[in-house]
Simulated assay, not measured.
Amino acid sequence: MYIYLLFVHIISAITAMAAVICYPLIMSSARTTGQAKFALALLEKTAILPKLGGTLLLLTGLALGFLETSLFKELWYLLSIVIFLVILVIFAGLIPAGIKQQLTLLQKTQGDNLPDAYRQSRRRSAWLEVIANLAAFIVILLMVFKP
């Protein structure tokens, strides 16, 4: 059972993390209002991937811990769960709220120039994405090297 859970855990990580890593890449390419609207609509459609993959990742990680109870005594395991919860809050709650706000700002915009209010909101989202990606990198390091 452990090996099957580990397999689902790894597939969930790939699903969640691939989407997370792509967010800044997609958004950094938007230079006009039309491009930003398209990029945000794309992110809105792919937002299910970090939510679904992340939830499944957390559940399988906890299930692995219940199968191997000694993991709950390991600092790397506990830190991974705490850091991952931060990532989940960012990508399941904060970033989707930012996407909705940015889309609303762009809907009110006439022309192709990106408004300053959008740029400020986008900067906030970009910082959240950087924090989440850095946290994901730390979690991966913790899981691979198990210090």
Score class of each variant (00 low, 15 high):
Ile140Asp: 03
Glu74Pro: 12
Ala39Thr: 04
Ala136Leu: 12
Ile11Leu: 12
Leu103Val: 02
Ala19Gln: 10
Ser70His: 07
Val86Arg: 02
Asp112Leu: 15
Ser121Arg: 06
Glu44Ile: 01
Ile140His: 05
Arg123Asp: 10
Tyr4Asp: 06
Gln110Pro: 15
Ala18Ser: 15
Ala18Gln: 13
Thr15Gly: 04
Trp76Lys: 01
Val89His: 07
Ala126Tyr: 03
Ala16Leu: 11
Ala136Gly: 13
Thr55Pro: 15
Ala18Asn: 12
Leu62Cys: 11
Lys45Gly: 06
Ala136Pro: 10
Pro147Arg: 01
Ile83His: 05
Phe72Gln: 02
Thr109Gly: 09
Phe38Ala: 11
Phe38Cys: 11
Ile131Ala: 07
Pro50Leu: 00
Tyr2Thr: 07
Ile26Leu: 12
Glu129His: 15
Trp127Leu: 12
Leu25Asn: 14
Ala132Pro: 02
Ile95Cys: 05
Gln120Glu: 09
Phe137Pro: 12
Tyr23Gly: 05
Gly54Pro: 03
Leu62Arg: 11
Pro115Asn: 01
Thr109Asn: 10
Arg124Leu: 10
Ala19Ser: 14
Ala30Asn: 07
Leu106Asp: 04
Ser80Asn: 03
Pro147Asp: 00
Tyr2His: 10
Ala16Asn: 06
Leu78Lys: 12
Gly34His: 04
Lys37Met: 07
Leu128His: 08
Ile140Tyr: 02
Leu114Gly: 08
Ser125Trp: 00
Gly34Pro: 14
Ile83Trp: 01
Ile3Gln: 09
Ser12Gln: 06
Met27Gly: 11
Glu44Gln: 15
Arg123Asn: 13
Lys146Phe: 00
Asn133Leu: 03
Ala30Ser: 13
Val144Gln: 04
Ser70Asp: 08
Ala41Ile: 03
His9Ile: 01
Thr60Ser: 15
Gly65Gln: 04
Met143Trp: 00
Ala117Trp: 14
Ala132Trp: 03
Tyr77Thr: 04
Asn133Tyr: 04
Val86Lys: 02
Leu57Asn: 13
Asn113Gly: 11
Ala39Val: 05
Gln107Glu: 08
Tyr118Asn: 05
Tyr23Glu: 10
Leu62Asn: 09
Phe72Leu: 04
Leu59Tyr: 00
